[in-house]
Design a protein around this nucleic acid. Structure first.
Length: 588
RNA sequence: GGGGAUGUGGUGUAGCCUGGUUUAACACACUGCCCUGUCAAGGCAGAGAUCGCGGGUUCAAAUCCCGUCGUCCCCGCCA
């Protein structure tokens, strides 16, 4: 009799049925005269019972240990009264074992396979196959599968084609650092692993495929974070003959379907749209967490004549002074406020000004520099109340926005203002085309150099600061879930953009020549989006780190403790590739 | 490249600040025995760690100092 059921699929309706199940001995409770084993497979847990009447089987059962692999046959029966376990789906029934085969044994484990015991991540990754046996982990990956299949189902139904793009491509110096693959046939030349299928999907539009998607692996050789891995998966989409709204609409319906099918949650569409400038001002971020308010306010106008010279000088230079009200923050101690100052320092802020709000005004060592009207303006604009703490940053606009934005999130978490059950989706739109790079005294593309401006006609170096892109980011609970744009399909506009970016004709040809050639041969208007699939999974499952939804992730130093990658290669391999190792000199 | 946290039996932690009453404690897991209704089973007994690694201070270091390595978080970076 072959296995004919998954453990956790057995219910009251199966009582009396002869079944065969396989799995791992999750836990064993030996009562001397009766032995219980929780048999676990990917579906969950079923209690199997050994009774001494079956002497030969019972003798084997006494030797069972954790994680032995078993095949058992027997009848499903109702559990005796008073022994029903309401905490498990199979808690009404149990399998009385008639036949038992030990398919494999296991030594004692390096850590317990349990949802209740935490283990260091290093050890979990080294024995990932054991870590992944944990029921919670199995569930995460079943959910990940469901999410990817729902996405495929959506796009297939909408007439999209799934087309694969190459892993071995050409290194493009723009953007993130590439992973390089040396070529054996072309000694001294390298392929690069794709940071995204961006250029290829645009070429697919030029080829006439009209609606494309791919759940694509991408690679970036940059430092890791909780939400960043050197290889990751993105949902990559591109469409022709469309405008921004078409991409946003398709994305919204796709996400709504995922939330419905996976979490049974109805997401309201269309999503809210927030201009980039407003996001940066009110939330101090281009990926605002809108689950709580605590808005940032700008006081550059109101305080330009204030007697506090730190503020006045900053404003005179054209930089902003902005404030944030921390509810009930007046109770923070001096050292707690110092800690906040240190925190904003991480973002480059040189200090943090503050006032404690009282029933009839404010107190702190800077209050004396402000007129009564100025204090009133601050209090009313931030809607501050007695017992709140108002903090200010006065600096370069980027530092002010980032510092207060990060502080807003930190305090929101700390004060419990974030409803963990909420899923807030929104679009950030109207991104600037360019960002001034002060170190190199030049304009950089905020998105990428193929992003279409809203107004290509009048685009020039002089008005680059004001140019708005046809770009959009979709944000979920303060995380950038994805972003996209309408691409430039007109070579005049493309030339203007390269001109502003100081990319010469030769340089453009060298870097993106094959795309530019392709665009010249009747490229349709097109645009698309890419969504971080690992992030989406982590957010839907409620995990903080994408490592929890990636089967075999890398550590923060980009190593894999399971396989020990990366590792040395043989002399022979190097020779074939024409490579010689020159280790970076340790300084000193 | 920078800042921070952390490293103690198989696992998770306590001890470290304030060095010596520590023979390094506790829980879980593990081994043996007992137990016929448990389900994160229970009872009894047992084995298991020179406290990441190297150096220093000291009569004495898990504990203080310096260095180093691993892991995690963050800044930079990620068009």
């Amino acid at each position: 009799m072959k296995r004919n059921f998954y453990c956790a699929d057995l219910r009251e309706s199966h009582i009396g049925t002869e079944v065969s199940v396989c799995g791992w001995a999750h836990s064993r409770r030996d009562h001397g005269g009766v032995i219980f084993v929780d048999l676990r497979d990917r579906s969950g847990i079923l209690q199997i019972v050994f009774q001494p009447e079956n002497t030969s089987v019972f003798a084997i059962a006494e030797k069972l240990r954790s994680e032995f692999v078993l095949s058992v046959k027997g009848k499903i029966r109702q559990r005796p009264e008073g022994t029903i376990n309401p905490n498990m789906p199979t808690g009404q029934v149990e399998l009385l074992v008639a036949e038992l085969e030990i398919l494999n044994t296991s030594p004692a484990l390096p850590f317990e396979i349990s949802d209740y015991v935490e283990t260091s991540e290093e050890l979990r990754l080294k024995y990932r196959y054991l870590d992944m046996r944990r029921p919670i982990f199995q569930k995460n990956f079943i959910t990940r599968h469901k999410i990817s299949q729902t996405i495929r189902e959506f796009f297939n139904k909408e007439g999209f084609l799934e087309i694969e793009t190459p892993f071995l491509g050409k290194s493009t110096p723009e953007g993130a650092r590439d992973f390089l693959v040396p070529s054996r046939i072309h000694n001294g030349s390298f392929y690069a692993l794709p940071q995204s299928p961006q250029i290829f999907k645009q070429i697919l539009m030029i080829a006439g495929f009209d609606k494309y998607y791919q759940i694509a692996r991408c690679f970036r050789d940059e430092d890791l974070r909780a939400d960043r891995q050197p290889e990751f998966t993105q949902v990559d989409v591109e469409m022709s003959f469309i405008e921004e709204n078409d991409i946003m609409d398709a994305t919204e319906r796709m996400l709504a379907k995922v939330f419905k099918e996976v979490l049974d949650i109805e997401i309201k569409t269309p999503f809210a749209r927030l201009p980039h400038s407003e996001a940066m001002l009110k939330y101090g971020s281009d990926k605002p967490d809108t689950r709580f308010e605590m808005f940032i306010s700008d006081f550059s106008d109101e305080l330009k004549n204030c007697k506090f010279t730190v503020f006045a000088n900053v404003i005179a230079k054209g930089n902003p002074v902005r404030g944030l009200c921390i509810p009930k923050g007046a109770s923070l101690s001096r050292s707690e406020i110092d800690e906040l100052t240190r925190f904003v320092g991480e973002y480059g802020a040189k200090g943090l000004a503050w006032m404690k709000i009282t029933a009839n005004g404010a107190e702190s060592n800077i209050v004396k520099y402000f007129s009564e009207t100025e204090i009133k303006t601050i209090v009313s604009k931030l809607n501050a109340k007695d017992g709140d703490l108002v903090v200010f940053l006065a600096d370069d606009v980027k530092i002010v926005a980032q510092g207060l934005g990060a502080l807003r999130i930190k305090m929101g978490k700390q004060l419990g203002l974030i409803d963990k059950n909420k899923f807030n989706l929104l679009w950030v739109v109207d991104f600037p085309m360019f960002e001034w790079n002060n170190d190199e005294r030049k304009w950089d593309a905020l998105h990428h150099p193929f992003t279409s401006p809203k107004d290509g006609e009048t685009l020039s170096k002089d008005n680059a600061a004001k140019a708005v892109a046809k770009a959009y980011d979709v944000i979920l609970n303060g995380a950038e879930l994805g972003g996209g744009s309408i691409r430039i399909h007109n070579s005049d506009v493309q030339k203007k953009v390269f001109d502003i970016l100081n990319i010469s004709d030769e340089a453009a040809k060298e870097k993106f020549g094959f795309l530019l050639d392709a665009l010249s041969f009747g490229a349709p208007p097109h645009g698309g989006i890419a969504l971080g699939f690992d992030r989406l999974c982590a957010l839907l499952i409620g995990e903080e780190s994408i490592r929890e939804v990636i089967a075999f992730p890398k550590t923060q130093k980009a190593a894999d403790p399971l396989s020990n990658a990366p590792a040395d290669v043989s002399e022979k391999q190097l020779k074939e590739l024409g490579l010689r190792i020159v280790l970076k000199q340790a300084n000193k």
